[in-house]
Design a protein around this nucleic acid. Sequence first.
DNA 1: GCCAATACTGTATATCTAACCAGGCTTCGG
DNA 2: CCGAAGCCTGGTTAGATATACAGTATTGGC
Lengths: 207, 207
Amino acid sequence: MEPLTKRQAEILALIRKFQAESGRPPTRAEICEAFGFSSPNAAEEHLRTLARKGAIEMIPGLSRGIRVLKTQRGVDAAEPGLPVVGRVAAGSPILAEENVEERYQVDARLFSPRADYLLRVRGHSMRDAGILNGDLLAVHRAAEAASGQIVVARLDNDVTVKRFQRRGHTVRLLPENPDFEPIEVDLRNEPFAIEGIGVGVIRTKPR
Amino acid sequence: MEPLTKRQAEILALIRKFQAESGRPPTRAEICEAFGFSSPNAAEEHLRTLARKGAIEMIPGLSRGIRVLKTQRGVDAAEPGLPVVGRVAAGSPILAEENVEERYQVDARLFSPRADYLLRVRGHSMRDAGILNGDLLAVHRAAEAASGQIVVARLDNDVTVKRFQRRGHTVRLLPENPDFEPIEVDLRNEPFAIEGIGVGVIRTKPR
DNA sequence: GCCAATACTGTATATCTAACCAGGCTTCGG
DNA sequence: CCGAAGCCTGGTTAGATATACAGTATTGGC
């Protein structure tokens, strides 16, 4: 989605708020009233811009034919449920909008510590820890971890799930499957960061 | 809320569905289209009746000025969340109150088919299917199952989770762990019933 | 300096929408 | 048998709404 100006973001926020409170999208006139515009064209132009930038969809001819396209919002907004993160684009923050597939309505407090998001796991390297290909790993955001914990780690633009082990300057990322090899990272000259700690698993399809 | 006729309940259901899918309430004309009415008055009268009976609110003069008042709590939308079943008392129905430990706020529609309850799994017999001791198995209530599905089965007052296999009069309950032995049941002279089908897993503690 | 984009005012209009009127058909209780 | 309520057709209209066109002013990049 193209970046929005401050004013455009305000308009988008109003559309969201209006819809959440009243159950219907606003008309041009209602947007004008909220912002003090005296011409419906002011609202119309903002809507067109938002549509062009991909923030909303406009259905021609329909009253209140506005759809907010992306549920957007990262961690801060108190939206119910947890964002599901699929493939993580190289270099982008893990909760960047482009990585969020959808939201699942799951109580974050089920997990302890609290889950911040769900990461869709690819591959079989954690099979013996009961984490299968396609599973959702409930992740608590953290930059530190204790040895033995299952972590979401970022190394050189690759995000992976492994069991964490640290000895001095060396970090070992251990798979839970004898078919895979441990990864060794020298913290002095290789990029490494912990994105979070695995606090649970959700599998929505039986195996 | 006064009781609704069958037709009125259908109209109300459509309003809910329309709003959930499009983000806006329907117009009279859109209701007509959905039901095949040829006059907007048919929709108008239904809306008035629904408003009189307290099911919806109508805001005069506004396009799409319909608000569904109660989230309804009938058969379909009972208590939110899923009941967690722990140890199942001998002979009692699996969802009997005495077996329900608590309720977890999880969207039942995450799973397909829909989950009806969560069963806390004891033991390691399904380890290689990624179902560990202490995990919650999301269960869809069913009395039948296809071979190869993971089922919750009741045999002689014992409830167990295994992979289901049937050949004529014989049912085999297969563990997913070489340390355990398959269970064979002769349907002609041994008690056996399927309680449900496993449709997912939730693990609230990392391993 | 100039063009494009943003951010509005002001006006106009075709059409969408809510809302009303008149009437037909059926069911059900008194 | 009657009246009321549910359920619908057909048609009408005031006003709500989307959308186009003509301007003005400001800002930032080239």
